[in-house]
């Protein structure tokens, strides 16, 4: 599938934002971060900013963004609509929480819980959008939504470490949570990749043209010499070799490097060290997520490719 920058930006930024929102709300609730306005601002404002930026990016994916409000109407059937509704719904407790926390130095438990839950639900909806798409076998697997959730949670945790360091809140518990979160997330991702690699094709070209068993089927005359939207949208291919390399980079940058920096931050103590190592971990993770998300699209193959020369998808 075509790796659209708008979608990569949206899913990574909003994912991290919701992750941070959830982690920070729960951390506040659990008393791991204080109810001080500064602390509230340090976690919630970046979270909301990331969510906002993600939503803004998603606008660029819509050809008719001026009608975006219509996307709230089909929550009974459409995960995209549900995502929109959940995102909007999450804003409410998130803003209430931010208001009380930043302005009044209070953490209303209900708002915190609801914001965290909203964040989880929103990211789950995002995952489901992809997970339900049968024509794209790599996405249509049970781990897709867990991976979205886990990566969002892990990125939220890493960002929380950074936010804590910035406002001088002790970040050790957060860092201690972030390390396993990262491990789980990338572990799931690894499993997701492997599952995608190993899965038997869901469809083959001979079946796609209704001539099951008459393989091989080779495209000799494409319908149009000049391609077109459908070909651009689904025709992206990344060489296996490059993909493997990129996966290794993503794993290193998303798991190894952040964990090392988090450990460094934990060991060195001191606010500056915590902040720098947190920043380094977050930036490395951001790079990893960008690569991961790019691969998410670029490696996914749509069944429509069966009519454009692929033997199996």
């Amino acid at each position: 599938m075509h790796p659209a920058p708008s979608l990569i930006a949206f899913t990574t930024l909003a994912g991290a934002g919701y992750g941070l929102l959830a982690v920070w709300s729960l951390a506040g609730l659990a008393g791991l971060v204080p109810a001080a306005p500064r602390a509230g601002a340090a976690g919630l404002l970046p979270a909301l900013a990331l969510i906002g930026a993600g939503l803004l990016a998603s606008r660029f994916h819509l050809a008719r963004p001026e009608r975006a409000l219509l996307a709230f109407t089909q929550w009974r059937t459409s995960w995209l609509s549900r995502e929109a509704v959940a995102a909007a719904a999450t804003f409410l407790p998130a803003l209430v929480l931010a208001g009380f926390w930043i302005l009044a130095g209070r953490i209303p438990p209900a708002a915190a819980l609801l914001a965290a839950a909203g964040a989880v639900v929103t990211v789950a909806c995002t995952g489901q959008i992809y997970a339900v798409l049968r024509p794209i076998p790599r996405w249509h697997q049970p781990l897709t939504t867990p991976v979205f959730l886990a990566l969002a949670g892990a990125s939220g945790a890493v960002l929380a470490v950074l936010a804590a360091a910035l406002v001088g809140v002790p970040g050790e518990p957060l860092a201690l949570a972030a390390v396993p979160a990262l491990a789980v997330a990338w572990g799931l991702k690894l499993a997701w990749w492997q599952r995608g690699d190993r899965a038997a094709p869901v469809a083959t070209a001979d079946r796609a043209i209704g001539l099951a068993g008459r393989a091989p089927v080779r495209l000799v005359e494409p319908p149009h010499s000049s391609g077109g939207w459908l070909v651009d949208e689904t025709g992206y291919r990344v060489a296996r070799r490059h993909a493997a390399k990129l996966r290794r980079i993503a794993l290193a940058a998303g798991l190894v490097v952040p964990v090392l920096f988090l450990a460094l931050g934990l060991l060195s103590g001191g606010r500056l060290a915590a902040a720098t190592s947190g920043l380094a971990a977050a930036m490395s993770l951001a790079l990893a997520l960008a690569i991961e998300r790019w691969l998410f699209f670029a490696e996914a193959r749509h069944t429509v490719r069966l009519w454009y020369g692929e033997a199996a998808v």
């Binding site: 000799v220 149009h224 010499s225 000049s226 077109g228």
Partner: peptide
């Protein structure tokens, strides 16, 4: 029409 056949190849 030119979208269908806008170039040609040697088969």
């Amino acid at each position: 029409l030119r979208q269908i056949l806008g170039d040609n190849r040697l088969c």
